[in-house]
């Protein structure tokens, strides 16, 4: 019974991993690729880690595996957000040519802080420049 549950968890996890890999390979934009990598990839590796305590059936291994899954679920959004923020500030346009950029003019270029409204004196100065 435990072997069947372990095998099913491994299969589901690897299917999520290959879905993440197809997304990373085929999506057109960095930001859409980030969706696939940070959501499906984390879920796949987390499910495969959760298969270890079911196969081993020891409480210390189970505790460590659950702690590892919680750690991955906490750190994957942080690293994805840091990478997306760095890519946006360094000038990578989102939207893949559709021209939609909701963050335009909201980052303070000197401090890197994000403001909630785009109509700041700095952004109006940018409009004059363009």
């Amino acid at each position: 019974m435990m072997d069947i549950v372990t095998g099913i968890l491994l299969l589901i996890g690897s299917v999520f991993a290959i879905a993440a890999a197809i997304g990373v390979l085929r999506f057109p934009d960095l930001y859409t690729r980030m969706h696939a990598a940070s959501k499906a990839g984390t879920l796949g590796s987390g499910l495969m880690l959760l298969a270890i305590p079911i196969a081993a059936f020891q409480p210390d291994i189970a505790l460590r595996a659950v702690a590892g899954v919680v750690f991955f679920l906490l750190t994957a959004p942080v690293s994805a957000h840091l990478l997306a923020r760095a890519a946006y500030i360094s000038g990578l346009v989102p939207g893949h040519g559709s021209g939609i950029d909701d963050l335009k003019g909201r980052y303070d270029p000197n401090t890197g802080n994000l403001s909630s409204h785009a109509e700041s004196p700095r952004s109006s100065r940018k409009k004059v420049q363009n």
């Binding site: 993440a20 990598a37 020891q58 991955f72």
Partner: peptide, 28 residues
Amino acid sequence: ADRVLALDSLVSIGIGFIAIIAIKTGYP
């Protein structure tokens, strides 16, 4: 940034490999 993202997901796939090897060898 694309390469950094791909390296990050490569690490998560490596974690999956380690989990499978842990189950296959019976060494948790």
